[in-house]
């Protein structure tokens, strides 16, 4: 019963997030809004830690796995990837390193 209740809370937040995103014409996904709703709900003490803890930890610990089905979809773009693999991987790698550098160095400087 604990698990079902906790899962229901997550699905409720997700649904609420989707509704706000749809009717508010927000450029944010329902899951991101749901995440902000969870923070607000906990801050307002509407949701307590023990209401979500078990399922939250399960979800956080296995997050990477939930990406696998989408990742396998890469096989559908074999043609484009074959033709443009150099420009795509070059752009991805350099851009990722630049973002890491910019955020990392700004935060490091400010933290000291």
């Amino acid at each position: 019963m604990i698990l079902i209740k906790q899962i229901a809370i997550f699905l409720g937040l997700w649904l609420l997030g989707e509704l706000i995103s749809y009717y508010g014409h927000l450029p944010l996904s329902g899951s991101i809004i749901g995440m902000l709703l969870l923070v607000i709900g906990m801050e307002l003490k509407l949701i307590k830690t023990e209401d979500i803890k078990v399922v939250a930890n399960f979800l956080l610990n296995n997050m990477a796995m939930f990406f696998i089905p989408a990742g396998v979809g890469i096989m559908c773009h074999y043609q484009i990837l074959k033709q443009e693999w150099l420009s795509i991987s070059g752009a991805i790698v350099i851009s990722a390193l630049l973002v890491l550098t910019v955020v990392g160095l700004i935060m490091k400087k400010r933290i000291r």
Binding site: G30, S31, G34, L37, L38, M42, L59, L60, F66
Partner: peptide
């Protein structure tokens, strides 16, 4: 499996 992607994003709020 992929259904749990959105709830796991919400869990980051915790």
């Amino acid at each position: 499996i992929s259904f749990w992607l959105a709830p796991s994003v919400i869990a980051l709020g915790y």
